[in-house]
């Protein structure tokens, strides 16, 4: 230890630390007890009469409503109806969106016509279009699928073509220089390169689909989680309403987890 020496007559102080922070991490094991505590406080407040059970039903009665719904088989019927609409509508909207996004991404005509079209139609609230959809598609399933599909369509288009635009042109040039066919350039270079954007778009479009599910099920739906929530609201069954909200939220979590899984699988190269 010869190095750290200093002249005795000079002032010496330690270098003050000023780094650190601004790097939030997820602390493990803290979230579950926190939520449990929140639920317990909520339940306690309800039991103590601090909040009216009508205004905010306690977790226990939400759970009871949920298990009643499950026991009667209604929950399954609601879920089946909603899942069908979500999946079918989302697939419809996403495939159409991918197609247009690809066209905008690779063709001048597609870009010239597509971008203003999307810019003009994207901001239209789909809920406001519902009466029109009903005139066009009737009050049955088609209008519900159309609502959800349209909600999923636009974010998919935008993310798909933005994703394609983000693929470095040098990679396309590379593909051409090796004599790859048009098709191979689209499927081996552009689409895989746009996949991160497309999956980010899927996250958005699936959330939008979930939000629109409730709107879609406003009209002419006997079953469906959205219909359940609306009906519970109208019947002042706030416990059922909250049960429906819980199911919607679980649905959202599940979808998000599935997309996360897809991302880990398909984007392992990142």
């Amino acid at each position: 230890m010869a190095e750290p020496a200093h002249r005795a007559d000079e002032p010496v102080r330690e270098v003050p630390f000023r780094g650190g922070g601004f790097a939030p991490r997820r602390l493990r094991h803290l979230a579950p007890p926190f939520f449990l505590l929140l639920l317990l406080l909520w339940e306690g407040a309800s039991r103590a009469g601090l909040v009216s059970p009508l205004a905010l039903p306690p977790p226990s009665s939400i759970l009871t409503a949920l298990s009643d719904l499950a026991a009667s088989g209604d929950l399954r019927r609601h879920l089946e109806a909603s899942l069908y609409r979500l999946v079918a509508g989302w697939i419809l909207g996403t495939s159409a969106g991918l197609l247009l996004g690809l066209l905008i991404g690779i063709s001048s005509l597609g870009r010239t016509l597509g971008i203003p079209l999307v810019a003009a139609l994207f901001p239209i609230p789909k809920i406001a279009m519902l009466p029109l959809f009903i005139l066009w598609f009737g009050i049955g399933e088609p209008s519900k699928l159309a609502t959800i599909a349209l909600g999923a369509f636009f974010p998919t288009v935008i993310n798909a073509y933005a994703g394609i635009d983000n693929v470095p042109r040098s990679l396309v040039r590379m593909g051409q220089s090796f004599g790859l066919s048009h098709r191979a350039i689209v499927f081996e270079i552009l689409l895989p390169g746009a996949l991160p954007g497309i999956l980010a778009g899927a996250r958005i479009s699936s959330s939008i689909a979930l939000v629109l599910l409730v709107a879609a099920e406003m009209i002419g739906a006997q079953y469906g989680i959205g219909a359940l929530v609306l009906q519970a609201g109208n019947l002042m069954r706030t416990d059922q309403l909250m049960a429906g909200v819980v199911v919607l939220s679980l649905l959202g979590l599940t979808i998000s987890a599935l997309i996360g899984l897809a991302e880990r699988r398909l984007l392992a190269w990142r």
């Binding site: 470095p168 040098s170 990679l171 040039r173 590379m174 081996e188 270079i189 895989p192 390169g193 996949l195 984007l267 190269w269 990142r270």
Partner: peptide, 8 residues
């Protein structure tokens, strides 16, 4: 810039 496909 190498022009490698990062997903391959």
């Amino acid at each position: 810039d190498f022009a490698l496909l990062p997903w391959r």
